[in-house]
């Protein structure tokens, strides 16, 4: 199944005002892989994601999604196979009701009404919010909004799921539900996040960005053990990998410094 591959080759991007966004990024993500994209604020995570869905065009280099190089001609086909969950659900939920919002993608794919309805209900059931179908998005809680935002994307049955900070602004319970939900997805996943504990649970592979450059790319556990890399990239060991400050005899690394 070669068509779920995401590949970046020698990617460069400079913002119109001259700020460097991305510099020489190379990676290849295979079918079914779950990859975390981590880095400090302004490291280029969101910029990279916007490239993967064709919202920004690289100044140099190219991206391949599946068999297609990402360009204007293939944009539609690419967006059909790539689903993006935005950081702020309010940006993603723009229709009057939850049902209409989830139906937006399938209708634009040209599905007949009956199929649209079926798809919407399946998507809502998958994320566990089918009871919200008739509600207005602006009346939902943060956790519900996030779940609906994910439903809007999976209703278009993408092969590749891209998420920008999916666990931000969620209470611990909602975050846990989100993680359990994402574990059940078999899509190729690319998750940009600061939540390294979630990355540890969900993603076998991690790409670390630092100032627009690829600082590391490898197995998540191995990278999170590399204190120098984490410190240089403005990150910190996930809490689950740190000693317990109350019962561990070893002082936790942060205090030791």
């Amino acid at each position: 199944m070669s068509h779920h591959i995401v590949q970046a080759e020698n990617l460069h991007y400079t913002y119109p005002d001259g700020t460097l966004g991305l510099n020489n990024i190379n990676f290849r993500i295979d079918h079914g892989e779950s990859v975390a994209l981590v880095g400090s604020n302004g490291a280029g995570k969101s910029t990279l994601l916007l490239h993967l869905i064709g919202c920004l065009t690289p100044t140099e280099g190219n991206i391949r999604i599946g068999d297609y190089p990402l360009n204007k001609k293939n944009l539609k086909a690419v967006r059909r196979s790539v689903g993006m969950v935005f950081q702020d659900p309010d940006d993603q939920l723009f229709m009057p009701t939850v049902f209409d919002d989830v139906a937006f993608g399938p209708i634009n794919l040209g599905l007949p009404d009956a199929d649209v309805e079926k798809r919407v209900m399946t998507a809502l059931e998958t994320v566990g919010v089918s009871h919200l179908a008739k509600r207005s998005p602006h009346k939902l809680s943060g956790g519900e909004k996030r779940a609906v935002a994910i439903a809007t994307v999976i209703a278009t049955t993408p092969d590749i799921l891209i998420m920008d900070e999916p666990s931000s602004n969620l209470d611990p319970g909602s975050r846990r539900r989100l993680i359990s939900l994402l574990k059940t997805f078999t899509h190729t996943k690319i998750i940009a996040t600061h939540d390294l504990d979630m990355a540890l649970e969900l993603c076998g592979r991690t790409i670390v960005l630092n100032k627009g450059e690829l600082a590391a790319d490898g197995e998540t556990k191995a990278l999170f053990h590399d204190d120098n890399l984490l410190e240089a990239s403005g990150l910190e060991k996930p809490l689950t990998m740190q000693g317990c400050p109350f019962c561990s005899k070893e002082p936790i690394p942060v205090i030791a410094k």
Partner: peptide, 22 residues
């Protein structure tokens, strides 16, 4: 800024200038 993000979100789901609803 927000308008731009919403537009991106719409384009990602195949918006072509018309809003259709069931």
């Amino acid at each position: 800024d927000r308008a731009q993000r919403i537009h991106l979100a719409m384009c990602c789901r195949g918006f072509d200038g018309h809003v259709r609803m069931v």
